[in-house]
């Protein structure tokens, strides 16, 4: 088990390193000199550009630049320009010449809240519905739930988002519109503010989960070992939860890992719909202003999230399925 996890963690580290390298190379495949970008659109002062070029360390060998970049993330660095950048250092934004980490640090609570709240919602609702459907297979509940899932799968957040705001916030007044959480100063307000965005984001996911869970459970229930368990007198309920769900859980967790990783990298549409300021919007802005260091940092952080979540998923998988653990 330990060896299994150690191998996975090591693999993850290698992947993250590879991703960092690829993102870093982004700097050099662009047709324009990053210094030109950093200087601004209308910057025609070649001397200034050359100065920036030097300040960014672009005159150093590529491997040296990469090494400085990676080292900066862990121990901080001081730029050739003399600016100091404490760890974790992702460089300086082109847009406002600020260190990047505080920008991300600012945005991450929103993304994290949205990701955790939303994924908890879609996991609980989706898997719960799927299990009920499987239990009631072929009956009315199952059919209704299947239809609802199909609808849920085909709507888009930018459609139900405003609809939900209009209904639950404006008309009924049950929930606030949703805004960036400030957990330290106003935990309760943050919580209520996140409910609507999380629920709306979960809709497009949970319909998928309920359908997946339903078919996984039905598949599991037709397995031979389920019949064996029933043949030795175990009750249907026991067999359903102890045997079938355990089998289905392994697959559900795998899908969940991918989805959780994705939302941890920012949920652009949800953020835009609710006017939230998470990593997704940060990335959109970075792309819009060609802010390369910021793009790289967001990319690296979301990719790492996906990889790390996947290692955790692998660990869960190993806990669920002894065949993985003992292989």
């Amino acid at each position: 088990m330990l060896r299994f996890l150690a191998r996975r963690a090591l693999g993850a580290a290698v992947i993250i390193l590879a991703i960092s390298l690829i993102t870093y190379l982004l700097f050099f495949v662009l047709p324009t000199d990053p210094a030109q970008l950093a200087c601004g659109k209308n910057c025609s002062n070649t001397q200034l550009v050359a100065q920036i070029h030097h300040n960014m360390g672009l005159d150093l060998p590529v491997y040296q630049q990469y090494w400085d970049y990676i080292r900066g993330i862990f121990v901080g660095r001081s730029m050739p320009s003399g600016q100091s950048c404490p760890a974790p250092c992702f460089g300086f934004s082109f847009a406002n010449d600020q260190p990047i980490w505080p920008l991300i640090q600012n945005r991450y609570p929103t993304t994290l809240s949205l990701a955790i709240g939303g994924s908890a919602a879609f996991l609980l609702i989706g898997v719960g519905l799927g299990m009920l459907s499987a239990w009631q297979q072929g009956k009315t509940f199952d059919r209704v739930a299947s239809s609802v899932s199909l609808v849920g799968n085909s709507v888009q957040i930018y459609f139900i988002g405003p609809l939900a705001i209009a209904l639950f916030a404006d008309k009924l007044g049950w929930l606030p519109h949703g805004s960036d959480p400030t957990w330290s100063s106003d935990p309760i307000g943050s919580l209520t503010n996140m409910i609507l965005p999380c629920l709306v984001m979960s809709v497009i996911f949970w319909s998928n989960y309920s359908r997946q869970t339903r078919s996984l459970m039905i598949e599991q229930l037709s397995e031979d070992h389920i019949r064996t368990a029933r043949a030795k007198g175990m009750s249907s309920r026991y067999v359903f939860y102890r045997y079938a769900l355990r089998g289905a859980a392994a697959s559900i967790i795998t899908i969940f890992g991918i989805d959780l990783g994705t939302v941890l990298g920012g949920a652009i549409i949800t953020e835009a719909t609710f006017g939230l300021h998470g990593l997704g919007m940060l990335a959109v802005n970075a792309v819009g202003s060609l802010d390369l260091p910021l793009e790289m940092a967001v990319m690296l952080i979301s990719a790492s999230s996906i990889v790390i979540v996947n290692v955790i998923v692998d660990a869960c998988y190993a806990v669920i399925d002894p065949r993985v653990r003992l292989a």
Binding site: T228, K232, G233
Partner: peptide, 23 residues
């Protein structure tokens, strides 16, 4: 039937790999 199964009557299945739960 649930009370009888396993107690009064039991079954041995063909393929022991799939008939036993891997978990």
């Amino acid at each position: 039937l649930e009370k009888l199964r396993g107690k009064k009557m039991a079954m041995i299945f063909q393929d022991s790999l799939t008939a036993l739960s891997p978990y």
